[in-house]
Design a protein around this nucleic acid. Sequence first.
DNA 1: GGATTCATGTAAGAGGTTACATGATTAT
DNA 2: ATAATCATGTAACCTCTTACATGAATCC
Lengths: 175, 175
Amino acid sequence: MKTRAATEYALLGVLRGGARHGYEIRHYIEVHLGSTWYVSTSQLYALLKRLEGLGWLQSCVEIQQTRPSKRIFSLTPQGRKAFDAWVLSPAKHVRDLRVEFLAKLFFIKNLRLEGGGALVESQVAVLNSLKEKQVDMQKRVQDGFQKLVLDARIANIECWIVWLRKKANKFVSVK
Amino acid sequence: MKTRAATEYALLGVLRGGARHGYEIRHYIEVHLGSTWYVSTSQLYALLKRLEGLGWLQSCVEIQQTRPSKRIFSLTPQGRKAFDAWVLSPAKHVRDLRVEFLAKLFFIKNLRLEGGGALVESQVAVLNSLKEKQVDMQKRVQDGFQKLVLDARIANIECWIVWLRKKANKFVSVK
DNA sequence: GGATTCATGTAAGAGGTTACATGATTAT
DNA sequence: ATAATCATGTAACCTCTTACATGAATCC
Protein backbone atom coordinates (compact mmCIF):
# COMPACT_ATOMS: atom_id res chain seq x y z
CA MET A 1 0.00 0.00 0.00
CA LYS A 2 1.68 3.14 -1.25
CA THR A 3 2.04 6.01 1.21
CA ARG A 4 0.09 9.13 0.29
CA ALA A 5 0.45 12.75 1.32
CA ALA A 6 -0.62 13.63 4.83
CA THR A 7 -3.47 15.87 3.68
CA GLU A 8 -5.20 12.89 2.15
CA TYR A 9 -5.06 10.95 5.39
CA ALA A 10 -6.44 13.93 7.23
CA LEU A 11 -9.48 13.85 4.96
CA LEU A 12 -9.90 10.15 5.66
CA GLY A 13 -9.68 11.02 9.34
CA VAL A 14 -12.52 13.49 9.08
CA LEU A 15 -14.67 10.87 7.40
CA ARG A 16 -13.62 8.24 9.94
CA GLY A 17 -16.03 10.06 12.26
CA GLY A 18 -18.95 9.74 9.85
CA ALA A 19 -20.02 10.43 6.25
CA ARG A 20 -19.82 14.06 5.16
CA HIS A 21 -19.91 16.14 2.00
CA GLY A 22 -17.13 18.45 0.83
CA TYR A 23 -18.45 21.62 2.34
CA GLU A 24 -18.92 19.96 5.71
CA ILE A 25 -15.41 18.53 5.63
CA ARG A 26 -14.01 21.98 4.98
CA HIS A 27 -15.99 23.37 7.88
CA TYR A 28 -14.91 20.56 10.17
CA ILE A 29 -11.24 21.09 9.35
CA GLU A 30 -11.54 24.82 9.81
CA VAL A 31 -13.13 24.47 13.24
CA HIS A 32 -11.18 21.54 14.65
CA LEU A 33 -7.87 21.51 12.84
CA GLY A 34 -7.68 25.15 11.82
CA SER A 35 -4.69 25.75 14.05
CA THR A 36 -2.70 23.06 12.26
CA TRP A 37 -4.13 22.40 8.89
CA TYR A 38 -5.48 24.34 5.98
CA VAL A 39 -7.07 22.86 2.90
CA SER A 40 -8.20 25.09 0.07
CA THR A 41 -11.53 24.27 -1.50
CA SER A 42 -9.98 23.54 -4.86
CA GLN A 43 -7.57 21.07 -3.31
CA LEU A 44 -10.27 19.53 -1.18
CA TYR A 45 -12.50 18.59 -4.09
CA ALA A 46 -9.53 17.36 -6.11
CA LEU A 47 -8.38 15.14 -3.25
CA LEU A 48 -11.83 13.71 -2.64
CA LYS A 49 -11.99 12.73 -6.29
CA ARG A 50 -8.53 11.18 -6.11
CA LEU A 51 -9.30 9.23 -2.93
CA GLU A 52 -12.47 7.90 -4.49
CA GLY A 53 -10.39 6.80 -7.48
CA LEU A 54 -8.08 4.96 -5.08
CA GLY A 55 -11.04 3.10 -3.65
CA TRP A 56 -10.60 4.62 -0.22
CA LEU A 57 -13.79 6.66 -0.42
CA GLN A 58 -17.17 6.17 -1.97
CA SER A 59 -19.81 8.78 -2.59
CA CYS A 60 -23.44 9.31 -3.41
CA VAL A 61 -25.33 12.44 -4.39
CA GLU A 62 -28.09 13.84 -2.21
CA ILE A 63 -30.43 16.11 -4.10
CA GLN A 64 -31.92 18.98 -2.15
CA GLN A 65 -34.75 21.27 -3.17
CA THR A 66 -33.69 24.55 -1.63
CA ARG A 67 -29.89 24.05 -1.86
CA PRO A 68 -27.35 22.72 -4.34
CA SER A 69 -26.94 18.95 -4.42
CA LYS A 70 -24.44 17.43 -2.05
CA ARG A 71 -21.99 14.64 -2.78
CA ILE A 72 -21.67 12.68 0.42
CA PHE A 73 -18.42 10.81 0.98
CA SER A 74 -17.79 7.87 3.26
CA LEU A 75 -14.83 5.61 4.01
CA THR A 76 -14.54 2.22 2.35
CA PRO A 77 -12.99 -0.61 4.40
CA GLN A 78 -9.68 -0.04 2.55
CA GLY A 79 -9.84 3.65 3.33
CA ARG A 80 -10.42 2.93 6.96
CA LYS A 81 -7.54 0.48 7.01
CA ALA A 82 -5.22 3.00 5.34
CA PHE A 83 -6.18 5.70 7.81
CA ASP A 84 -5.78 3.49 10.86
CA ALA A 85 -2.31 2.44 9.73
CA TRP A 86 -1.32 6.07 9.15
CA VAL A 87 -2.70 7.52 12.34
CA LEU A 88 -0.78 5.13 14.60
CA SER A 89 2.57 5.35 12.82
CA PRO A 90 5.25 7.78 14.06
CA ALA A 91 6.63 10.50 11.82
CA LYS A 92 9.88 9.56 10.09
CA HIS A 93 11.16 13.13 9.90
CA VAL A 94 11.38 15.87 12.48
CA ARG A 95 9.79 18.31 10.06
CA ASP A 96 6.61 16.23 10.09
CA LEU A 97 6.04 16.66 13.81
CA ARG A 98 4.68 20.23 13.68
CA VAL A 99 1.70 19.42 11.53
CA GLU A 100 1.32 15.78 10.64
CA PHE A 101 2.06 14.26 14.01
CA LEU A 102 -0.09 16.78 15.86
CA ALA A 103 -2.95 15.96 13.52
CA LYS A 104 -2.56 12.30 14.37
CA LEU A 105 -2.88 13.14 18.04
CA PHE A 106 -6.02 15.10 17.25
CA PHE A 107 -7.66 12.21 15.47
CA ILE A 108 -6.70 9.69 18.12
CA LYS A 109 -8.25 11.82 20.81
CA ASN A 110 -11.25 12.88 18.80
CA LEU A 111 -12.13 9.44 17.49
CA ARG A 112 -11.25 7.86 20.85
CA LEU A 113 -8.83 5.45 19.22
CA GLU A 114 -6.64 3.06 21.16
CA GLY A 115 -2.86 3.24 20.87
CA GLY A 116 -2.15 6.90 21.52
CA GLY A 117 0.28 6.18 24.32
CA ALA A 118 2.10 3.63 22.19
CA LEU A 119 2.31 6.09 19.32
CA VAL A 120 3.92 8.71 21.53
CA GLU A 121 6.40 6.14 22.79
CA SER A 122 7.30 4.93 19.32
CA GLN A 123 7.66 8.53 18.16
CA VAL A 124 10.08 9.14 20.99
CA ALA A 125 11.98 6.01 19.94
CA VAL A 126 12.20 7.23 16.35
CA LEU A 127 13.48 10.59 17.55
CA ASN A 128 16.03 8.97 19.84
CA SER A 129 17.46 6.96 17.00
CA LEU A 130 17.49 10.00 14.74
CA LYS A 131 19.28 11.91 17.45
CA GLU A 132 21.90 9.20 17.84
CA LYS A 133 22.63 9.32 14.14
CA GLN A 134 23.13 13.07 14.25
CA VAL A 135 25.34 12.81 17.31
CA ASP A 136 27.50 10.21 15.58
CA MET A 137 27.77 12.36 12.50
CA GLN A 138 28.68 15.36 14.55
CA LYS A 139 31.66 13.52 15.95
CA ARG A 140 33.01 12.66 12.51
CA VAL A 141 32.31 15.95 10.78
CA GLN A 142 35.00 18.62 10.65
CA ASP A 143 33.28 21.51 8.91
CA GLY A 144 32.02 24.21 11.26
CA PHE A 145 28.78 24.80 9.42
CA GLN A 146 27.91 21.13 9.29
CA LYS A 147 28.56 20.91 13.01
CA LEU A 148 26.23 23.85 13.53
CA VAL A 149 23.47 22.30 11.44
CA LEU A 150 23.74 19.02 13.32
CA ASP A 151 23.75 20.88 16.60
CA ALA A 152 20.53 22.68 15.70
CA ARG A 153 18.90 19.42 14.71
CA ILE A 154 19.93 17.69 17.89
CA ALA A 155 18.63 20.57 20.00
CA ASN A 156 15.34 20.44 18.15
CA ILE A 157 14.95 16.70 18.51
CA GLU A 158 15.67 16.94 22.24
CA CYS A 159 13.07 19.64 22.57
CA TRP A 160 10.47 17.44 20.88
CA ILE A 161 11.34 14.42 23.01
CA VAL A 162 10.82 16.41 26.20
CA TRP A 163 7.56 17.80 24.87
CA LEU A 164 6.26 14.41 23.76
CA ARG A 165 6.96 12.83 27.13
CA LYS A 166 5.50 15.73 29.07
CA LYS A 167 2.55 16.96 27.03
CA ALA A 168 1.61 14.64 24.18
CA ASN A 169 1.42 11.71 26.53
CA LYS A 170 -1.05 13.47 28.79
CA PHE A 171 -3.15 14.63 25.89
CA VAL A 172 -3.77 11.15 24.52
CA SER A 173 -4.17 9.46 27.89
CA VAL A 174 -6.78 11.82 29.36
CA LYS A 175 -10.25 10.62 28.30
CA MET B 1 11.05 43.90 -5.20
CA LYS B 2 9.04 40.70 -5.02
CA THR B 3 10.25 38.00 -2.66
CA ARG B 4 11.33 34.77 -4.33
CA ALA B 5 11.73 31.22 -3.07
CA ALA B 6 14.68 30.55 -0.79
CA THR B 7 16.37 28.19 -3.24
CA GLU B 8 16.79 31.02 -5.71
CA TYR B 9 18.52 33.18 -3.14
CA ALA B 10 20.80 30.30 -2.28
CA LEU B 11 21.92 30.17 -5.90
CA LEU B 12 22.57 33.89 -5.83
CA GLY B 13 24.59 33.29 -2.68
CA VAL B 14 26.79 30.75 -4.39
CA LEU B 15 27.48 33.20 -7.21
CA ARG B 16 28.06 36.02 -4.73
CA GLY B 17 31.42 34.33 -4.14
CA GLY B 18 32.35 34.41 -7.83
CA ALA B 19 31.11 33.46 -11.31
CA ARG B 20 30.39 29.77 -11.83
CA HIS B 21 28.67 27.48 -14.28
CA GLY B 22 25.79 25.14 -13.43
CA TYR B 23 27.82 22.06 -12.78
CA GLU B 24 30.15 23.93 -10.47
CA ILE B 25 27.24 25.42 -8.55
CA ARG B 26 25.82 21.97 -8.01
CA HIS B 27 29.13 20.72 -6.75
CA TYR B 28 29.55 23.70 -4.45
CA ILE B 29 26.12 23.19 -2.91
CA GLU B 30 26.73 19.49 -2.47
CA VAL B 31 30.02 20.03 -0.67
CA HIS B 32 29.21 23.10 1.42
CA LEU B 33 25.45 23.07 1.91
CA GLY B 34 24.79 19.37 1.45
CA SER B 35 23.70 19.00 5.06
CA THR B 36 20.99 21.60 4.60
CA TRP B 37 20.13 21.99 1.00
CA TYR B 38 19.58 19.83 -1.99
CA VAL B 39 19.00 21.09 -5.51
CA SER B 40 18.31 18.64 -8.31
CA THR B 41 20.05 19.33 -11.59
CA SER B 42 16.80 19.83 -13.42
CA GLN B 43 15.70 22.44 -10.93
CA LEU B 44 19.10 24.08 -10.92
CA TYR B 45 19.15 24.77 -14.63
CA ALA B 46 15.54 25.91 -14.57
CA LEU B 47 16.24 28.36 -11.76
CA LEU B 48 19.35 29.76 -13.41
CA LYS B 49 17.30 30.46 -16.50
CA ARG B 50 14.59 32.11 -14.44
CA LEU B 51 17.03 34.25 -12.47
CA GLU B 52 18.64 35.41 -15.67
CA GLY B 53 15.18 36.35 -16.94
CA LEU B 54 14.67 38.39 -13.77
CA GLY B 55 17.86 40.29 -14.47
CA TRP B 56 19.56 38.99 -11.35
CA LEU B 57 22.06 36.90 -13.25
CA GLN B 58 23.88 37.22 -16.52
CA SER B 59 25.70 34.52 -18.41
CA CYS B 60 28.15 33.84 -21.18
CA VAL B 61 29.19 30.63 -22.88
CA GLU B 62 32.71 29.33 -22.69
CA ILE B 63 33.55 26.89 -25.43
CA GLN B 64 35.98 24.12 -24.56
CA GLN B 65 37.69 21.69 -26.91
CA THR B 66 37.83 18.56 -24.81
CA ARG B 67 34.66 19.13 -22.76
CA PRO B 68 31.09 20.33 -23.36
CA SER B 69 30.60 24.10 -23.43
CA LYS B 70 29.95 25.81 -20.14
CA ARG B 71 27.47 28.61 -19.47
CA ILE B 72 29.07 30.78 -16.83
CA PHE B 73 26.73 32.75 -14.58
CA SER B 74 27.49 35.84 -12.58
CA LEU B 75 25.49 38.20 -10.37
CA THR B 76 24.19 41.49 -11.75
CA PRO B 77 24.07 44.48 -9.38
CA GLN B 78 20.34 43.86 -8.90
CA GLY B 79 20.99 40.23 -8.10
CA ARG B 80 23.58 41.19 -5.56
CA LYS B 81 21.22 43.68 -3.99
CA ALA B 82 18.44 41.10 -3.80
CA PHE B 83 20.72 38.55 -2.20
CA ASP B 84 22.15 40.97 0.34
CA ALA B 85 18.66 42.01 1.40
CA TRP B 86 17.62 38.38 1.76
CA VAL B 87 20.63 37.12 3.61
CA LEU B 88 20.35 39.68 6.40
CA SER B 89 16.62 39.40 6.96
CA PRO B 90 15.24 37.12 9.69
CA ALA B 91 12.86 34.29 8.88
CA LYS B 92 9.22 35.18 9.37
CA HIS B 93 8.14 31.63 10.22
CA VAL B 94 9.56 29.06 12.59
CA ARG B 95 9.47 26.43 9.87
CA ASP B 96 11.99 28.46 7.87
CA LEU B 97 14.66 28.25 10.55
CA ARG B 98 15.76 24.66 9.88
CA VAL B 99 16.88 25.26 6.34
CA GLU B 100 16.58 28.83 5.15
CA PHE B 101 17.93 30.58 8.20
CA LEU B 102 20.81 28.15 8.58
CA ALA B 103 21.73 28.74 4.96
CA LYS B 104 21.82 32.47 5.65
CA LEU B 105 24.28 31.87 8.46
CA PHE B 106 26.39 29.80 6.12
CA PHE B 107 26.60 32.54 3.51
CA ILE B 108 27.32 35.25 6.05
CA LYS B 109 30.22 33.28 7.43
CA ASN B 110 31.47 32.02 4.12
CA LEU B 111 31.32 35.34 2.32
CA ARG B 112 32.54 37.16 5.42
CA LEU B 113 29.58 39.52 5.40
CA GLU B 114 28.90 42.07 8.09
CA GLY B 115 25.69 41.95 10.10
CA GLY B 116 25.60 38.36 11.28
CA GLY B 117 25.28 39.32 14.92
CA ALA B 118 22.49 41.75 14.10
CA LEU B 119 20.67 39.09 12.08
CA VAL B 120 20.75 36.65 14.97
CA GLU B 121 19.45 39.34 17.29
CA SER B 122 16.64 40.34 14.95
CA GLN B 123 15.74 36.68 14.46
CA VAL B 124 15.49 36.31 18.21
CA ALA B 125 13.27 39.40 18.29
CA VAL B 126 10.98 37.95 15.62
CA LEU B 127 10.73 34.71 17.56
CA ASN B 128 10.01 36.53 20.80
CA SER B 129 7.14 38.41 19.24
CA LEU B 130 5.83 35.20 17.65
CA LYS B 131 6.04 33.52 21.02
CA GLU B 132 4.11 36.31 22.70
CA LYS B 133 1.32 35.96 20.17
CA GLN B 134 1.06 32.23 20.79
CA VAL B 135 1.09 32.74 24.54
CA ASP B 136 -1.72 35.29 24.27
CA MET B 137 -3.73 32.94 22.09
CA GLN B 138 -3.18 30.08 24.48
CA LYS B 139 -4.81 32.10 27.24
CA ARG B 140 -7.93 32.77 25.20
CA VAL B 141 -8.33 29.35 23.59
CA GLN B 142 -10.54 26.74 25.28
CA ASP B 143 -10.10 23.70 23.04
CA GLY B 144 -7.64 21.13 24.36
CA PHE B 145 -6.09 20.34 21.00
CA GLN B 146 -5.55 23.97 20.14
CA LYS B 147 -3.90 24.45 23.50
CA LEU B 148 -1.63 21.51 22.74
CA VAL B 149 -0.67 22.86 19.33
CA LEU B 150 0.15 26.25 20.79
CA ASP B 151 2.13 24.62 23.55
CA ALA B 152 4.23 22.70 21.04
CA ARG B 153 4.89 25.84 19.07
CA ILE B 154 5.90 27.79 22.13
CA ALA B 155 8.27 25.03 23.25
CA ASN B 156 9.82 24.97 19.80
CA ILE B 157 10.26 28.69 19.62
CA GLU B 158 11.88 28.74 23.04
CA CYS B 159 14.24 26.03 21.95
CA TRP B 160 15.29 28.04 18.92
CA ILE B 161 15.76 31.21 20.94
CA VAL B 162 18.12 29.43 23.32
CA TRP B 163 20.00 27.88 20.43
CA LEU B 164 20.31 31.15 18.54
CA ARG B 165 21.69 32.97 21.56
CA LYS B 166 24.10 30.18 22.44
CA LYS B 167 25.28 28.76 19.13
CA ALA B 168 24.32 30.85 16.14
CA ASN B 169 25.78 33.93 17.73
CA LYS B 170 29.14 32.29 18.20
CA PHE B 171 29.17 30.89 14.70
CA VAL B 172 28.79 34.25 13.01
CA SER B 173 31.04 36.18 15.37
CA VAL B 174 34.08 33.88 15.16
CA LYS B 175 36.21 34.93 12.20
C1' DG C 1 36.54 -2.64 -20.05
C1' DG C 2 33.58 -0.25 -16.74
C1' DA C 3 32.67 3.42 -13.55
C1' DT C 4 33.05 8.17 -12.66
C1' DT C 5 33.51 12.99 -13.99
C1' DC C 6 32.23 16.71 -16.87
C1' DA C 7 28.24 19.35 -18.67
C1' DT C 8 23.84 20.30 -20.28
C1' DG C 9 19.19 19.78 -20.27
C1' DT C 10 13.83 17.75 -21.27
C1' DA C 11 9.45 15.51 -19.75
C1' DA C 12 6.17 14.18 -16.74
C1' DG C 13 4.10 14.41 -12.49
C1' DA C 14 3.19 15.42 -7.37
C1' DG C 15 1.20 18.36 -4.41
C1' DG C 16 0.06 22.23 -3.59
C1' DT C 17 -1.56 27.74 -4.29
C1' DT C 18 -4.56 31.89 -5.70
C1' DA C 19 -8.04 33.60 -8.33
C1' DC C 20 -12.26 33.00 -10.66
C1' DA C 21 -17.14 31.16 -11.63
C1' DT C 22 -21.96 30.13 -10.38
C1' DG C 23 -26.21 30.80 -8.08
C1' DA C 24 -29.85 30.38 -4.73
C1' DT C 25 -30.95 31.30 0.34
C1' DT C 26 -30.86 33.25 4.63
C1' DA C 27 -29.43 36.43 8.22
C1' DT C 28 -28.61 41.48 9.48
C1' DA D 1 -30.02 46.24 0.38
C1' DT D 2 -25.98 43.60 1.25
C1' DA D 3 -23.27 40.26 3.36
C1' DA D 4 -22.65 35.65 4.71
C1' DT D 5 -23.80 30.79 4.09
C1' DC D 6 -24.50 26.78 1.29
C1' DA D 7 -22.29 23.95 -2.32
C1' DT D 8 -19.63 22.76 -6.16
C1' DG D 9 -15.93 23.19 -8.95
C1' DT D 10 -12.24 24.98 -13.07
C1' DA D 11 -7.91 27.27 -14.68
C1' DA D 12 -3.60 28.73 -14.27
C1' DC D 13 0.36 28.71 -11.99
C1' DC D 14 4.38 27.53 -8.61
C1' DT D 15 8.06 24.83 -6.62
C1' DC D 16 10.13 20.94 -6.64
C1' DT D 17 10.84 15.78 -7.76
C1' DT D 18 12.15 11.56 -10.37
C1' DA D 19 13.41 9.61 -14.39
C1' DC D 20 15.41 9.96 -18.79
C1' DA D 21 18.76 11.62 -22.58
C1' DT D 22 23.35 12.61 -24.53
C1' DG D 23 28.17 12.08 -25.17
C1' DA D 24 33.16 12.69 -24.70
C1' DA D 25 37.10 12.02 -21.34
C1' DT D 26 39.48 10.13 -17.83
C1' DC D 27 40.44 7.19 -13.85
C1' DC D 28 40.98 2.38 -12.02
